[in-house]
Simulated scan of single mutants.
Amino acid sequence: MDHDRYDDAYLAGILKDTKTIALVGASPKPDRPSYGVMRFLLSRGYRVIPVNPGQKGKEILGQKTVARLADIDEAIDMVDVFRASEYLDGVIDDVLALETRPKAVWSQLGVRDDRAAVKAEAEGIKVVMNRCPAIEIPRLSL
């Protein structure tokens, strides 16, 4: 897949099919982008599970934080990644190790690793990189 450009239908399909999102790199600090995006996603009716080992057991925006993806005890539809590009491959490995895998991995603005994307896509997981759902949802009028 060409990760320089995404079809609007591809992005909309992922966002419409998603109900539960694991947000990797969630921050409790209101000035952090992950906090604002999490707040936006919650306001749009998504279930968001914050993932951050340093915040394990604490709440971010009223949602209990888990340390790692493997600690989530419910099915997730999408993993939204707020980690630097160099960590995306490891997040993909964590996704692929899950018993029930999400349908999509979405990495935020500035986060891209084409090799990691190929690995996920080879396992049937859709990948979006260098995009923000909080920008795409309004742009696509979802």
Rank of each mutant, 00 (worst) to 15 (best):
D2Q: 12
D2W: 09
D4C: 11
Y6E: 09
D7M: 12
A9K: 13
A9S: 15
Y10F: 14
Y10T: 05
L11Y: 10
L11G: 04
L11V: 04
A12Q: 12
A12R: 15
L15K: 08
L15T: 00
K16T: 11
K16S: 11
K16Q: 14
D17A: 15
T18H: 05
T20F: 11
A22P: 00
V24R: 14
S27C: 01
K29P: 00
P30D: 15
R32E: 07
P33W: 01
P33H: 03
S34C: 10
S34N: 11
Y35K: 07
V37K: 06
M38R: 02
R39W: 02
R39F: 09
R39Q: 15
F40T: 10
L41W: 01
L41N: 07
S43D: 14
G45L: 09
G45I: 05
G45S: 13
Y46A: 14
R47H: 13
V48L: 10
I49M: 04
I49N: 01
G54R: 11
K56P: 02
K58G: 04
L61S: 10
Q63N: 11
V66C: 06
R68G: 08
L69R: 12
L69I: 03
A70P: 00
D71N: 08
I72D: 08
A75R: 14
I76V: 13
I76E: 10
D77I: 03
M78N: 10
M78I: 06
V79D: 03
D80V: 04
A84Q: 11
S85P: 09
Y87W: 07
Y87L: 14
L88T: 14
L88H: 01
I92G: 10
I92L: 12
D93N: 10
D94K: 10
V95N: 07
V95I: 15
L96G: 09
L96F: 10
L96K: 00
L98Q: 08
L98N: 08
E99C: 08
T100F: 09
T100N: 15
R101I: 00
P102T: 13
P102M: 12
P102E: 14
W106S: 02
S107R: 10
S107V: 06
Q108V: 06
L109C: 00
L109T: 02
L109N: 03
V111S: 04
R112H: 06
R115Q: 09
A116P: 00
A117I: 03
K119W: 03
E121L: 09
E121C: 03
A122C: 08
A122P: 03
E123D: 08
I125S: 05
V127M: 12
M129C: 02
M129R: 01
N130F: 03
C132L: 06
P133V: 00
P133A: 05
A134V: 01
A134M: 04
E136G: 04
E136C: 05
E136M: 02
E136Y: 00
E136H: 08
I137P: 09
I137E: 13
I137F: 04
I137Q: 13
R139M: 09
L140R: 07
L140T: 04
S141Q: 15
S141M: 15
L142E: 03
